[in-house]
Amino acid sequence: MTQNTEKRTVVDVAERETKTLVETVLSAETVVSVGKGASLTHYRLAEDAENALTVRLDAGASYTLITLALGTGKLRIAADLAGEGAVCRSDVVYAATDDEVLSLQTDFTHNADKTVSRQLVKGAANGRAKASFEGRILIPYDKKEIDGSQQHRALLLSRDCEIAAVPRLEIYADDVKCAHGSAVGSLNAEQLYYMRARGLDESEARRLLTTAFLNEVLDGIRDEALRSDWEAQTAERIGL
């Protein structure tokens, strides 16, 4: 189902097929097509990667994407919900530290009725890292029974890091349920105090709270070995 070159990876899931794909080396461009009634679960590790992913979902197609973005990189995820009843779930964890610069851009278009999109983006920045998330949901004017949501939550782990979030909803239709939210903050001081009062040192408490926060997304990975490997890599990469 996949063709792979350095420049371009093409993934086609035929009608009514169910597939799982794990991608750890990314081309510059990834093109995914999920056919009628087909289902694709896609896990991607984007380590210091630059990649543009475009996904097209036909009627009744279901696409579940979990992306782990580490280090300096530039990622774009564009989804075209082209067929009626298509469901797209895209969750992302991003983590950057030192002088890394990481940007994530998502662009979901509901081009058919009764389409559903769900995005949960969780991130953390440490050191002097700069991270940005820009997410767009576009719902053209004549579409009906659309359900979209986009949530972004991120942690600032140092004084000198930066996280910018730009959620953009462009809704031209009436029959729409669309929710979005973005919150960027520091670790909770009361939680840190409670943990330290039980004997955990500060860095241990910070690491535990941060990984618990990010693992909400990674817990969605059904392959246990892959999940614990990626969870460990995330903790290490963020410098905790």
Partner: peptide
Amino acid sequence: ESIEERACDGIFMAFQRPVEIPGV
């Protein structure tokens, strides 16, 4: 001493309002 040094020295408080720690 730091908070954690005191805890490791044997001081413990049962909190009036214990905090929630999601994910742990």
